[in-house]
Amino acid sequence: MIKREVILVNRLGMHARAATKLVQIAQKFRSKIIIEVNGMEADAKSILGLLTLAAPVGTKLLIKAEGEDEEKALKAVVALITNRFGEGE
C-alpha cells in the first residue's frame, strides 16, 4: 500500500461534480483507493462515500492505494485533485 497527502485546492471542495470525476478516474484502476479525511475513510470509487466526507477547500486528504496498479492509480488521483478537477478556480 502506498499513500500520499494532498490538499483540496479547488474552491468548491469535494462537491458532486468533482466527486463524480474522481470516481471516473478511480474506476480505471484495479487497486483499492481510499480517501481519508480526519480519520474518516471513503472509497474513491463510491460517489456516496466521497460526498459523505463533505470536504471543503483546504481539507487535507490522505490518498491510499493498494493493488497491482497502485502507483499509477495514486498518481492519477493526486493529479486530478491538484489540477482542481479541471475547474477554473
Partner: peptide
C-alpha cells in the same frame, strides 16, 4: 460554502 457540501453529505 461548506453548507452545500453538508447538505449533499446528509443525503449521501
Amino acid at each position: 460554502p461548506n453548507l452545500h457540501l453538508q447538505v449533499l453529505a446528509a443525503i449521501a
